[in-house]
Amino acid sequence: MSADVLFELKNVDKKFVRGKETITIFEDLNMTLDRGDFIAIMGPSGSGKTTLLNMLGGVDRPSAGKVTFAGEAISSLSESDLAKWRADHVGFIFQFYNLMPMLSAGHNVELPLLLKKMSKAERHKHVAAALKLVHLDERASHKPKELSGGQQQRVAIARAIVTDPDLLLCDEPTGDLDRATATKILEMLQMLNQEFNKTIIMVTHDPEAAKFAKRQLHLDKGQFVDKEI
């Protein structure tokens, strides 16, 4: 395993206040994640897996403590800097794909490129390459509802990698798919990790899915129990 540290969490607290009640999800969480790793995060429902992923992805902030990414404290970036950071470094893959129903597969994949300074021709080149990588180059003009769940998730993967980010964050990427389709998706993630050196953090309930990762982390009572495969 490389010693190149990508993420570092220092004394991270995360609390939710709901009315008079305060729910503590994490208290004094410390951890590091290495570049090029493929980690499966597992744990019981409500243990805070999504919350952690949100903090790593810069869509949520810790209540206290620090999250650094390649030496940069993302937890103290402004909203708009954080949006830019996400556009530059993170690809998200969601359980329900979260494709834009009004846009074709190609236009969905193109979305993150709209945030880059890029000509239309360049964008199309990148979109075509990303769709080819997920074997959907022939479906570029199809709307999401004309695609199967597995195909939609592949479009979502193409969208996540089209800007060539360092990091892929996946929340239950196969949670809505059957075993055979799930396996294809997981193999694809594995390929992205091995051949393109993407760092992948994947939340999953499914022990079979977790086996595709290099490492499994078990979240319990706000702390990690490290389990090597």
Binding site: G57, V59, E79, S80, A83, K84, R86, A87, D88, F92, F94, F96, N98, M100, P101, L111, P112, L115, R159
Partner: peptide, 14 residues
């Protein structure tokens, strides 16, 4: 809601 939140996650500004 999901659509908008997804766009924002991708990095679209408000």
């Amino acid at each position: 809601t999901t659509e908008v939140a997804t766009l924002r996650a991708i990095g679209f500004s408000s």
